[in-house]
Amino acid sequence: MMMGYGFGGPLGWLGMGFGLIIHLAFVALIVMAAVWMFKAVFRDGQQANKPIKAVEILKERYARGEITNEEYQRMKKELE
């Protein structure tokens, strides 16, 4: 005589299917959280570089003569 419900629990194969779906959903959530954290880390790094890039563009515009010294100083002060 067998004791207990077996591998799938009281629902048999149906219980095993639900267990598989729950397991896959849990793994998918872990993967999505890892991707979100990875993007968050590198997004912060990109935002930190934006003011530096803006100052570089401003310097190039000043070097080409597109803006005057007064405009350059005012814009540089605003960026800092």
Rank of each mutant, 00 (worst) to 15 (best):
G17C: 03
M32S: 08
A25P: 04
I57F: 11
G8L: 12
G45A: 02
M3P: 01
I22P: 01
G9A: 01
K39F: 06
K39P: 15
G9K: 10
A40N: 08
P51R: 03
M16K: 08
V41H: 04
K39T: 03
G19S: 11
K77M: 05
R64T: 15
H23A: 10
E71H: 09
A34T: 01
E80I: 15
A28V: 03
G12C: 01
G65T: 11
V41F: 05
I21D: 14
P51W: 06
M75G: 06
V55W: 00
Q73T: 11
L58T: 08
Q47D: 09
Y72Q: 09
M2S: 14
Y72W: 13
G15A: 07
Y72G: 11
E60M: 10
K53T: 11
F7A: 09
D44M: 15
E71P: 06
L29P: 02
E66G: 04
R74D: 02
G17S: 05
A28Y: 03
K39L: 14
L29F: 07
F42D: 10
G17M: 12
A25R: 09
G45L: 12
G17A: 04
K50M: 08
I67N: 00
E60G: 06
P10C: 00
L24I: 10
G15R: 00
A34C: 10
E71C: 14
F7E: 10
Y62A: 08
D44I: 06
